[in-house]
Computed example of a mutant assay.
Amino acid sequence: MEKLTSNEKQLQKQYMNEIKLDRKNKKEFDYSGDIILDDVSYTYSRKTPFEFRALDNATIAIDKGKITCVIGTTGSGKSTLIQLTNGLIITETGRTRIGDYQIPAATKKIKEVKKLRREIGLVFQFPEYQLFQDTVEKDISFGPINLGGNKEEAIKAVPELLKTVDLPVEFIKRSPFELSGGQKRRVAIAGIVAMNGNTLVLDEPTGGLDPQGEEDFMNLFLGLNKNQGKRIIMVTHNMDQVLRLADEVIVMNKGKVIDKGTPFEVFADHELLKQIEIEPPKIYQLIYKLKAQGLDLTGFAIRDIDDFVKAYSTTMKKKEG
């Protein structure tokens, strides 16, 4: 880790004083507001030949109630960034703010860690590998019980949670290890939803799934956002998924946030995608070809083929008129 500048030390002292006042004056924190990562940094394998600065003084706001996708090449800092949101790792500079709750840099222990992780559920890539209980019911209810929730209420909620992730209620007494890969993943996600937090953070949640499995999970995440109002933060390499789901897109490169915008704004910028070596969604590959031939559709909000047809028709009518 690089030595802190005098200004960074002064800011850290200011943040620590702020959080002391917050804890003195507040009995409860509200974790539902915007998540602000303010000048955050993180270094892996410090003081070894493998030292790697994954985040380099990055700053970004992640809005409440929206689906935000984080994109960038391998090693750009995406997964490290999202792990800051529930205190799994702590920034070396700046601070993390979740609603009105703050985690200043170099915090040794998060006093409210159980409440924070109940509100911000982190789903790793291949979450089915996190299953370990002998029944689906125990696995889904484990999180809320372990974080201090009422055991009876947690178990009572399991049937509805199975419906939420589109699994039969009859699975409740089955071993999760008897299920298919996609079913296991649904159980794991149900366990995160069980904690009833306002935010789900997903790291490559559809990795290894077939196209139908990917489609099913995209519908699940959309439903959790639109029907239950949950903020979804998702890291993915699949730009077609980003185009379909995202309200906002965060673009990362070499540990820094280099852009943020709607998927239409980000994907309309062909030079940006070439800079970060990201292949655009299939429909935007067609849009780029049309633009090169003099037909520019990049000003339209195009998610699917229906949007494309409308934009194409509108543009052609203007040309003909």
Rank of each mutant, 00 (worst) to 15 (best):
N225Y: 06
V266G: 09
K256W: 06
T236A: 06
L272W: 09
V249I: 04
G229Q: 05
F221K: 10
N253S: 15
A268I: 11
R231P: 13
P281D: 03
D247M: 01
I232P: 10
A246P: 09
E248G: 06
L243K: 08
E271C: 03
D216Y: 08
A268F: 07
N227T: 05
G229N: 06
A246L: 08
E279D: 14
H237L: 00
F217Y: 03
V249T: 13
L224F: 04
M239Y: 00
L245N: 08
I278W: 01
H270Q: 15
D240Q: 09
D259M: 09
N238I: 02
K226F: 00
A246K: 09
L224Q: 02
R231G: 07
L209P: 00
F221C: 03
K256Q: 15
L222K: 15
E214D: 01
M234L: 14
V257G: 15
N225G: 00
I278Q: 05
L222G: 11
M252W: 04
I276T: 12
L273T: 13
K256D: 06
N219F: 12
M252H: 13
Y284K: 11
V235S: 03
M239G: 08
K260G: 07
Y284A: 11
P280I: 15
D240H: 12
K256T: 12
E265G: 02
F264D: 10
R231T: 15
Q228L: 15
F267M: 11
N225C: 05
V251N: 05
Q285I: 04
A246S: 14
E214L: 02
Y284M: 09
N219A: 14
D210V: 04
E214H: 01
